[in-house]
Amino acid sequence: MTHPVINLEKVWKIYKVGTKEVTALQGLSLKIEKGKFVSIQGPSGSGKSTAMNMVGCLDKPSKGRILLDGKDISQMSESRLAQIRGKKIGFIFQSFNLIPTLTAMENITLPMMFQGIPQDERIKRAKMLLEKVDLGDRLGHKPTELSGGQQQRVAIARALVNDPEVILADEPTGNLDSKTGVNVMEFLKKLHTEDNKTIVMVTHDPSLSRFADRVVYILDGKLTDKSKT
């Protein structure tokens, strides 16, 4: 059996909203093996984004354990989690989340800066990745000077710079037209098949299931029976 790169063990997330408690995850258990392309699907408010935040070390569970590469990260300090995020996880967001004041090149070099990679190496890697996403001629452009598809490709390049084990994509096509969306998905699929990257994608679009080799459904903070394991 393949070694699970991500293992969520009975994870609960309870938020306090005023005096009320809202349970976003109810004992969610999920194993994601290395090299898999997993799509997490579910309706709005189902808890899929919360699950994604847990997997991405952006949030800590109220109960349960999260193991990344066998290590329990659920109780790690914020600084340690930041290090793990920078090294092991690459994020792709629905709204691209590029820093608007920086150029494409600077946006891509930023995660490497936080890992202490020397400047020469940063520039070399950033150029190589921008070539890979067909934006070699857009190095000095700011996000506002790029189309949605181009911005998402810059975001994908940024997610790849530190050669992470896991790529987390949160509604990666949500802000793109269908044609550009398909291009982005094909690029992610290529990363999965050619570079053997583990990809976890959150989406509410069932049509994107075809790109994944495993689809899990979340409803009311739990996996449903429909989930293919």
Partner: peptide, 12 residues
């Protein structure tokens, strides 16, 4: 949030 997501620590 973005900076933290891509690896920035509190100190940075």
């Amino acid at each position: 949030g973005i900076l933290k997501a891509i690896g920035a620590q509190n100190m940075e």
